[in-house]
Nucleic acid binder design. Structure first.
Length: 162
DNA sequence: GCCAACGTTGGC
DNA sequence: GCCAACGTTGGC
C-alpha cells in the first residue's frame, strides 16, 4: 500500500557530506545519522516514510542552498551511531533497548546542475513560508510543502536553461 | 571570524 | 520550574 508521499528538507554541511558524496555511496544510499535534536528526531521517527522525497540542502556553504534531491528508502529506525563510544555522535543516554535517536536511509535521486541558492529561494514569493528561509532557522530536518518542493525543482530547471 | 538565534544545562 | 550561562548552528 503506497501511503501519501511527504516532502522534506535535510540539511548537511557539504564539507562533511555533500550531494556528490551521496551519489558516490555504494547503491547511492546512506543512513542519515547524527541528528541530535528532539524536534527533528520526532520527524525521523514518526513522520518520514519510505518513498518520501527530500530536498538535499547544503548549509554552511558558499553559497548555501538546495543541491539536489533524494528519496527515503527506509523509514525511521534507531540511530546506532549513538551507541558507539568511538563515534562522533555517541550519546551515552541513548540505549539500544530504549533508543533516544533515530535515523532514516536516503538514496540519491538527482544533483542539480546548478545549486538553487538560498538567495534564489528568497526571491520567490511562493517559497516565503519555507522553514529554511526563516531567520534563525536551525532545524536540520524540516517538512516541506509539495508546492514548495515542486517550485524548487522548477527553479533548478530554469537555472539550467540560462 | 562574527554574532544572532536557539536549544540545553544546571544552580537555585 | 525559572532563568542565566553556555554551546551550537549557520548566514553573512
Amino acid at each position: 500500500m503506497a501511503g501519501k508521499v511527504s516532502y522534506w528538507l535535510l540539511k548537511t554541511e557539504p564539507d562533511c557530506f555533500s550531494i556528490a558524496d551521496l551519489k558516490a555511496q555504494p547503491k547511492q544510499t546512506t543512513y542519515w545519522d547524527g541528528v541530535r535534536n528532539y524536534q527533528a528526531r520526532n520527524m525521523l521517527r514518526d513522520d518520514i516514510k519510505e518513498g518520501d522525497r527530500v530536498l538535499f540542502y547544503h548549509s554552511n556553504a558558499k553559497p548555501p542552498g538546495v543541491a539536489g534531491t533524494a528519496i527515503v528508502v527506509k523509514a525511521g529506525y534507531p540511530d546506532f551511531t549513538a551507541f558507539d563510544p568511538h563515534d562522533q555522535h555517541y550519546d551515552p543516554k541513548s540505549r539500544a533497548d530504549e533508543p533516544t535517536w533515530y535515523m532514516v536511509d536516503i538514496k540519491f535521486e538527482s544533483a542539480f546542475p546548478e545549486l538553487v541558492s538560498l538567495d534564489d529561494m528568497k526571491a520567490v514569493k511562493s517559497l516565503a513560508e519555507m522553514e529554511v528561509l526563516r531567520r534563525g532557522s536551525r532545524l536540520s530536518v524540516q517538512p516541506v510543502r509539495k508546492s514548495e518542493f515542486e517550485t524548487v525543482l522548477k527553479l533548478a530547471e530554469q537555472k539550467q536553461k540560462k
